[in-house]
Computed example of a mutant assay.
Amino acid sequence: MDNKYDVVVVGGGILGTFHAYHAMELGMKVCLVEKDNYPKGATTQNFGQVVPSGMNTKWQKYGRESLRIYKEIQSQFDISIRQNGTVYLASNEEEEQLLVELRAINNNNEYSSKMLTKSECLERYPGLRRDYVKAGLFFPDEVTVEPRTMIHRLQEYLVAQKGLEIKTGFLVSSCERTGSGIEVRSSMGESIFGKKVIICNGSDFKNLYPELFAQSDLEVSKLQMMQTKPQENYTLKGSILTGWSIRRYEAFYECPSYHEIKAKELPDTPQKNWGVHILFKQALDGSVILGDSHQYADAAHADDLGYDLDMDIDNFMVQEAKKIIQLPNYEIQRRWYGMYSQCKTSDIFKKIIDEDIHIVTGIGGKGMTGSAGFSKKNIAKILNR
């Protein structure tokens, strides 16, 4: 029957799409279902940075495999991948020390990086303020993507060249075992069947399994970002991460000096209260994306984060960005926020129901970087390959 599949994936974001991709790579007949007409959640509302350098040792392995997968697909079909590297810019001696230590860790892991002097940073990144930068650490293999187009191009590639079936506007109302396998039923009464069902729809799985959701330790993070007008005759290559990123990203937790340096920080600052670390990335149209902030709430109370943009946060981020890079203009043409779910006590949320229904969600801010690599290992485990 046309409505029977080896694998049904619920959720058309980056995590679900790559589970579908790797299932097809293993020869499975796959259907991907998405509740909206197209993906528009966290997968499209982020910076589009693929930065294994910012991950701890465990997840960096997934991130590096993701890089390989992204580049392999890009060689066959344009999904907006650009290999232009990532740089971390230290603003003082403590941050420079963390960069030196991270480079040693990455050398040991055989992951390429290069320390940059102050002069090299100033030469590479036009507009970078001399009174801000102390040193840099550059990762040449890392890439950027255009998040608002990448997932659509990726799915277009999978449909056209890999045979993926996608059903949009398919809001799943139930997922239960029947004599024909696992029946995935939509709110409109359409049913499809899978030998395995993988649910990757963020915190929306609460509608299917409310008790499981209530027992989970999921929380939601709200991130504010903005985009300048196009910068005339100006090029800023790659992902630019700054001193506050160095003090925030998981990779630096493994540095010997990290905890001592963090202990010296003032606890009650706008940066801390709003979870701000300043990032820059130039989009294809020449505009520059700036951000971002992090506000948290338990997933069951995500509405408490509100639906508005906090202009105090945006104004603070612009003010701090100007202390780092002097762009030709800081005229903002667009502002938005993204929401993603993550776990408080583990790095991802995984539950198995009735042996053949797998919930995989709560990947948090690791989604764009880690999903492709993690999904490869996870789907092999689910399918016993």
Rank of each mutant, 00 (worst) to 15 (best):
D204I: 02
K196G: 00
L128M: 15
Y62V: 05
N46W: 01
I325Q: 07
Q76L: 13
D310F: 05
K377W: 07
G338N: 08
E232P: 09
N201I: 08
A283I: 04
K61L: 13
M188G: 11
D217M: 11
T86L: 11
F374Q: 02
F316D: 01
G163T: 08
K35S: 11
I192R: 07
S221N: 03
D314I: 15
S371V: 11
I198E: 00
A297E: 09
V159Y: 03
G367T: 06
Q224G: 01
E176R: 11
L279D: 01
D131V: 10
V50P: 04
E190C: 03
K281L: 04
H22N: 10
I313E: 02
D312T: 13
N233V: 03
G189F: 01
G181F: 06
D292Y: 05
N273K: 12
A372F: 03
L212S: 06
V100D: 09
Y249H: 07
N315R: 14
K162C: 04
P270R: 07
S75Y: 04
E165W: 00
L383V: 06
G16V: 03
M188R: 13
K206F: 07
P39S: 07
L158F: 12
K376H: 11
D217Q: 09
L327M: 11
G13N: 12
D285N: 13
S293V: 13
K162R: 15
D304R: 12
N207C: 03
F374G: 03
L266H: 12
R64Y: 05
G136Y: 05
Q76T: 05
M339G: 01
E65T: 13
Y253A: 06
L284H: 07
D347S: 08
L383R: 02
Q231E: 14
F77A: 06
E110A: 13
R103V: 04
I246P: 05
G127E: 08
A299N: 11
Q282K: 11
V50N: 01
D268H: 08
V10T: 06
L212Y: 04
M311D: 14
L99R: 03
H259R: 15
A299R: 05
V51P: 01
E219F: 13
V159Q: 12
I14A: 03
C121F: 04
Y132H: 06
M150R: 03
T17V: 13
V276C: 12
D298G: 09
V51L: 08
